[in-house]
C-alpha cells in the first residue's frame, strides 16, 4: 500500500513518515500529496500566535484536551526556530503537553531557515493531518515578529495570545497583530494587570475598521484550564460566521493564488539554483556578491536567465 493511502486509513506511523518526507522535500512527497489532496479541506485549522512566554504551548495543550474530551481528534503542529548557524533545533513544545496518548497527534517542526514563523512544509503538513482524519489542527507558531502575519494565511481562525506584564502593552499590540487576530486571548489572567491588558486590547480593537466578525477578547488561565471552553466556543462561532460571510469565497481565491505563487517561486528557485550549481556558476557568483562586486539582484538575473552579464 502506498504511504498516502496508509495515511488516509489513519496509520499513525505512515503519517509520521509522510510528514518527514514532506519536511525534507523528498521526491516521494509529491506522490503522497497527490494521493491525499482530494481528502483535505474539512478540518478546522486554528493558528496560535503570540510573543514567547505568553503560554501558547500550554494553551494549545488545554485546547487539545478540550476537543479530545468532546470526542474530536486533534493534530498539533508546533514550529520552533532552527539555528541559522548549524541548522539544528531544540524543539521543546512537548514539555508543556500532558500525555494524551494517540488521540492527539503532535509534530514538532523546525522552521529550517524559513522566515515568518512557520516552516516551508507547513501547508502540506496541515494537509497530511487532515487526510489522516484529524478534526482540529492546532498550529503553533515560533512566536516572534512576522509569524503572526503568515499564520493567518494557513489558519481558518487565528488566536493571538498575550499576557500581562510583558512590557509596554501598546508596543506589543501595534505590530500588525490587531489586524490578524480573529480571537484575542489574555492568558495568565490570574496575574496582576490582566484586566487592564484586556481593557486596552478592547479599546484598541474598537478603533479598528468595522467588520462582520468582531474579534472577542477572552481571558484564560491555561495552567488551570480556566476559560478554555469559551475559546473553543469562540472558534466554532468564528467558523460559522465565516461560512455566512459573502466575502469568504474571494478570500479563498486570494489564498489559493498566494499558495500557488509561492509553490511556483520555490520550484523555479530550486531548479535555477540547481542548474547554476551544475554549471559551476553558483559558487563564483556567491563570491562576487559577498565581495560586493555584483549586486544580488543582477546575480539572480544571471541565474534565472542562464546568461552571463
Amino acid at each position: 500500500m502506498s504511504l498516502g493511502k496508509a495515511v488516509l486509513e489513519g496509520d499513525r506511523r505512515a503519517l509520521a513518515r509522510a510528514l518527514t518526507l514532506v519536511e525534507n522535500q523528498h521526491p516521494d512527497a509529491e506522490e503522497i500529496v497527490r494521493d491525499i489532496h482530494g481528502h483535505t479541506g474539512h478540518a478546522i485549522v486554528v493558528g496560535i500566535t503570540g510573543a514567547p512566554g505568553v503560554g501558547k504551548s500550554t494553551l494549545v495543550d488545554r485546547l487539545a484536551g478540550h476537543f479530545l474530551a468532546a470526542g474530536r481528534t486533534v493534530g498539533i503542529l508546533a514550529v520552533d526556530p532552527s539555528s541559522p548557524f548549524t541548522g539544528g533545533a531544540l524543539l521543546g513544545d512537548r514539555i508543556r503537553m500532558e500525555g494524551r496518548g494517540s488521540g492527539v497527534f503532535m509534530r514538532s517542526i523546525a522552521a529550517r531557515g524559513q522566515l515568518g514563523g512557520l516552516a516551508r512544509s507547513t501547508p502540506r503538513a496541515i494537509q497530511l493531518l487532515e487526510a489522516a482524519g484529524r478534526d482540529f489542527i492546532l498550529l503553533e507558531t515560533v512566536g516572534a515578529g512576522q509569524s503572526e502575519v503568515d499564520v493567518m494565511g494557513y489558519a481558518d481562525t487565528t488566536l493571538v495570545v498575550v499576557a500581562p506584564g510583558l512590557g509596554d502593552d501598546v508596543q506589543a499590540f501595534k505590530a500588525g497583530i490587531l489586524e490578524i487576530g480573529d480571537i484575542f486571548v489574555v492568558n495568565k489572567a490570574d496575574r496582576p494587570g490582566a484586566d487592564q491588558t484586556a481593557r486596552e486590547l478592547r479599546q484598541m480593537l474598537s478603533l479598528g475598521p468595522r467588520r462582520a466578525w468582531r474579534p472577542p477578547v477572552l481571558s484564560t488561565t491555561a495552567q488551570t484550564g480556566e476559560g478554555i471552553g469559551e475559546i473553543a466556543e469562540a472558534i466554532l462561532e468564528h467558523k460559522a460566521s465565516m461560512e455566512r460571510d459573502p466575502e469568504v469565497g474571494v478570500r479563498h481565491l486570494h489564498e489559493a493564488e498566494r499558495f500557488l505563487r509561492q509553490a511556483v517561486a520555490e520550484q523555479l528557485a530550486d531548479a535555477a539554483v540547481a542548474r547554476a550549481k551544475a554549471s559551476g556558476r553558483w559558487a563564483p557568483l556567491v563570491e562576487e556578491v559577498a565581495h560586493r562586486r555584483k549586486d544580488p539582484i543582477w546575480a539572480a538575473r544571471e541565474i534565472v536567465s542562464g546568461e552571463e552579464r
Binding site: S83, G88, A89, L91, G92, G99, S102, M106
Partner: peptide, 23 residues
C-alpha cells in the same frame, strides 16, 4: 546535539515509557 545540526525533541521530566514511545 542541536549545536551539531540535529533536530532535538526534548520531552521534559517524568515521562512514562508509553509517552516516550508515542512521542
Amino acid at each position: 546535539l542541536r549545536d551539531a545540526g540535529m533536530e532535538v525533541i526534548y520531552t521534559g521530566l517524568h515521562q512514562t515509557p508509553e509517552e516516550i514511545v508515542e512521542a
